[in-house]
Amino acid sequence: MSTSTPARLDGGAGLEQLTDHLWEAVLEGDEYAATELILHAVDEGLDAESVLLDVIATVQGKVGAEWAANRISVAQEHAATAINERAVAALTLHPAARTAPTRGRVTVACVDGEWHALPARLLAEVLKLRGWQVDYLGAQVPAPHLMSHLHRTRADAVALSGSIATRLPTAHAAITACQTVGVPVLVGGAAFGPDGRYAELLGADAWAPDARAAADILARGPLTRPRPDHQQVHDLPHLVDQEYTLVSRNSASLVRSVFTGLEDAFPAMRTYGDMQRERTAEDLAHIVEFLAVALYLGDEGLFARFLTWTAEVLVARGVPAQSLPPALHLLATELKDFPRASRIIEHGTQALTTGHLSTGNPA
């Protein structure tokens, strides 16, 4: 792909054209072409925020969709993400993207265990463009480190990003910790649900569906600071039954038991090679993880959406989704004395067998 003479960009058609060209560049692994496209677009007068959110973010969304459909490999997905991150970094150095801070201070971080950092980075750069002083802490920020930072900087708000629903218990702890020291929390990302239902459940002060909406919320005025005695101890009363704790603590043994039984319940597995067996064990671990978070949130639908999404991913890779119901039956047998877990597994199995396939992210 050559960008020695990039095409002129005009309005909406220019954004679409730029998005197409950037997709071609990241798909080819051409970092130089990608950054040149982005910088040229800003030189041509395209708004930097629009480049970040309407071009780079759109391409990154396509990267995830193409991986799920098995049209690009894991390696290509990683390379494309890295190139998009480099494109963001290049844009931030452009003079047109430099804005002096005129507003308050915001800390942007990913939930501990969350390694999808690009959404948080995009938000951080948008907030900088809008005049905020931003402390971007990146991926996988442990709550104690986040607290230490807040004590030192006295931020006006924390923007917490999460893409994977299994990190929501950790997100809950981080939200509560931030509020305990009087800092309000704005959350976003696929993990919190398409309508923000988990943000409200976990007590976040605000939720935004995307970076632009998050910046708009902060622009409307400061989030109310929580009282120093703020607590959320009783927010999730269903956890009293200890099912979440027991499933989480015994996840490894549950995976081993189901994996062993699956060879008899799903005879095709006996022909699997080492790599296929390893992938099966990973899939089972994810199933148990999502069951645990569904128990934590008290939401049967989350587990069902994960299962139907997993079935779509398996089918796209030529793996029979018929292996899932036997695995779920074995898991239900292991957890027969856990009423909530049993109901969640039953609901998920019904979603699979009735063909209610998901669209998009399982969170």
Rank of each mutant, 00 (worst) to 15 (best):
I217A: 07
R317F: 06
T271V: 09
V293S: 04
E77F: 08
A219E: 14
T180H: 08
L239A: 10
A252G: 15
A173L: 06
P237V: 12
A215R: 02
P222Q: 10
T58C: 12
S4Y: 09
P228F: 06
R256P: 04
R279P: 00
V258N: 00
D112H: 13
H94R: 14
V141N: 00
E24H: 08
E278G: 10
C110S: 15
H151R: 12
D299S: 03
I175T: 03
V111C: 02
A213D: 14
D216F: 09
G61V: 09
A7N: 11
S163I: 10
G301R: 10
T5K: 09
A109I: 03
A75G: 09
I344T: 11
S2R: 06
T166D: 08
F338S: 01
G61H: 08
A159Q: 05
Q350C: 06
R152F: 12
T81E: 07
A351K: 00
T349G: 12
H286T: 09
P226T: 05
P339Q: 13
V258I: 10
R227K: 10
V315D: 14
S257I: 05
R98P: 02
A351Y: 01
D47H: 14
P339C: 14
R152G: 11
D283Q: 09
L307H: 03
D112P: 02
Q242N: 11
D156N: 12
A65D: 15
A117P: 02
A294Q: 04
A75M: 12
G113A: 11
F306V: 02
S248P: 05
D229M: 08
P144T: 10
L168H: 00
A41Q: 02
E125Y: 06
C178H: 03
A75L: 13
T310K: 08
L123W: 03
E243L: 07
Y296T: 05
G298D: 09
R256C: 13
Q231F: 13
T271S: 11
G138N: 09
K128E: 15
P228L: 13
P325C: 09
I217Y: 03
L324K: 00
L52Y: 04
Q17C: 07
D274R: 06
G261W: 04
K128Y: 06
A265T: 06
E77H: 06
L18E: 00
Q242T: 09
T280V: 09
P101D: 08
